[in-house]
Amino acid sequence: MDASNPNNPFNPNDPGQQSQSDNPDNAAVDGAYNQDPQNKFAAGKKKAGSGPDEQIWSGGYSAVDQSGSFIILTLITIGLIVGGVFFWPLVFAIPVLWIAQFIRVWWIKMGVSYELTTRRFMHEHGVIKRTTDRIEVIDIDDVTVEQGILDRMFNVGTIKITSSDRTHPELRIPGIKDVKKVALMIDDARQEQRDRRGVYIESV
């Protein structure tokens, strides 16, 4: 018995009366049980989002998406050539229309770019003023592919992303080459993040 504290039954010289802090096994068990649930959830959430953010795919607008416009413009050109036989000034409209079409396609192509990583889908738009928007892939609810007849012929299309993101609850991405493959990449990245987050939440 400690002479300085006669009411303290702990004897440091007694090997059978070791404190729990001296036993690492007991400390680990107590730490697991006494951990704050909020901190435990935050640790699991942090672990679920850990790891490098790796790029899966990057791309932009494909001019092949304008195949329908080019076909229509070709028919108009033929009509102007025929009309030029009777009224020759109509021929001067042909280069103007084609130049305007190429400028339009170039503007659209330069105005957008996309990047898919393991965590985010990034959408950049604008030529003079560039704006970058990010959607967490775990917030994506649905990925839809839209294709017309010509789109299926040239393997392009539009991807529609529905998510819980407040800025872009519905994002349409036109002119994507290999559209079904890209849509599958987005869906796989979303499912992988949801599965990973679900595993860590269950472990908490």
Rank of each mutant, 00 (worst) to 15 (best):
K45I: 00
T132K: 05
G79F: 14
R104E: 00
N155S: 15
F92A: 13
K129C: 03
V199Q: 15
Q55V: 15
D187C: 01
Q101A: 03
S164T: 10
L171Q: 02
F10S: 05
L116Q: 00
A100Y: 05
W57H: 06
V64Q: 07
I173K: 05
G157W: 03
Y33Q: 00
E202C: 00
D14Y: 09
Q66C: 13
V137P: 07
G31L: 03
K181Q: 10
V85H: 06
R119T: 09
V204D: 02
K47V: 11
Q38D: 07
R166K: 14
N13L: 13
L116N: 09
P9R: 10
D165R: 05
G60Y: 13
D188G: 01
G59N: 09
F87W: 13
D65M: 12
I76R: 03
V199W: 14
A63R: 06
F102I: 11
P95T: 09
V85I: 15
T158F: 05
P89R: 11
D165C: 06
I81G: 05
D178P: 02
L184T: 07
D188P: 08
V85F: 13
V143P: 06
D151V: 00
V137C: 07
D53R: 07
F87V: 13
I103R: 04
N7E: 07
V29I: 09
G51F: 14
W98C: 05
T131F: 06
Y200M: 15
S164P: 04
K177M: 12
G83H: 04
Y200V: 12
V137Q: 00
I149G: 04
H168K: 11
G83P: 04
G148I: 04
R120S: 11
R134A: 09
T144G: 01
V91C: 14
I76E: 12
F70Q: 02
T158I: 02
S62H: 10
I159M: 09
W106V: 12
D139S: 14
H123C: 06
G84E: 02
N23M: 13
T117F: 05
R190K: 15
P12N: 12
L73T: 10
Y61N: 11
P12M: 08
F121A: 09
T74A: 15
G44A: 13
D165T: 10
G157D: 02
I149M: 06
T131H: 08
T162H: 01
D151Q: 09
Q18D: 00
T118K: 04
V82P: 05
F87R: 08
T162D: 05
A183L: 08
A93K: 08
D142K: 10
Q17W: 04
L116M: 01
Y114Q: 01
D133R: 09
I76G: 03
D14P: 03
D14V: 10
D14Q: 03
P37R: 05
I135M: 05
K109Q: 15
Y61H: 11
S21Y: 15
D195L: 08
E54V: 14
Y114T: 02
P174L: 01
